[in-house]
């Protein structure tokens, strides 16, 4: 069914259409949220927040973008806002640990190359990381990313290229090991 027709039925209060819309998009939203946060509870919370907002704001969907892109843009906004708050919270907790003189022993053993890569992805600046996860991990196109994030397609490509360069540099010590 075309998404405009589905949206119309949801707006008319058809509960089956609401469920249909949810079923069509929930996997993609949850997967993207999970890839971004790596935490089941948070991914679940962000997915729920996303759909509450989607149903709340469906009247503002004009059909200029694809429905899936519009929903993704809400999901990304929910995840990024949520993560800012989580980060603030974690920073406070780290401060508390410092104040109490708690130290985490340095890991001696070098982790596996893939783990190093995943850690390097975690440490990317938010903008780079968002584009990298959407494109290289989840397979969104640059057009979809640009629509969802409200940026130019060229900006998305540039962010991805910088993200990859940063990862390459972060894994410099392992040069050559990716030939397996």
């Amino acid at each position: 069914m075309p998404s405009t027709e589905l949206v119309g039925r949801v707006m008319a209060g058809d509960p089956q259409a609401e469920r249909e819309l949810y079923d069509t998009h929930v996997d993609r939203v949850y997967r993207t949220a999970y890839r971004m946060v790596g935490d089941q509870d948070l991914a679940q919370e962000y997915t729920q927040d996303t759909f509450v907002r989607v149903f709340d704001r469906l009247g503002t969907f004009r059909g200029e973008a694809k429905l899936s892109t519009w929903i993704t843009s809400i999901a990304i906004s929910v995840v990024l806002n949520g993560q800012r708050k989580v980060k603030r919270q974690r920073t406070r907790e780290v401060d508390l640990d410092d104040a109490q003189g708690v130290t985490i022993p340095e890991r001696r053993a070098e982790p596996d190359l893939k783990i190093r890569l995943h850690q390097a992805i975690d440490r990317l600046p938010t903008g780079y990381r968002t584009v990298f996860v959407m494109h290289d991990v989840e397979g969104y196109t640059h057009v979809e990313i640009a629509d969802a994030l409200g940026i130019q397609e060229g900006t998305s490509k540039a962010q991805l290229s910088r993200a990859r360069a940063k990862l390459r540099s972060a894994l410099g010590a392992f040069e050559g090991e990716w030939v397996q």
Binding site: Y22, V26, Y34, M36, V37, T47, K114, L117, I121, V137
Partner: peptide, 17 residues
């Protein structure tokens, strides 16, 4: 290797709904 970054589990669709 990027495809293995934060591999998502099966979404709890009903609970979230």
């Amino acid at each position: 290797a990027a495809k293995e970054y934060n591999p998502p589990p099966e979404p709890p669709r009903e609970a979230m709904w």
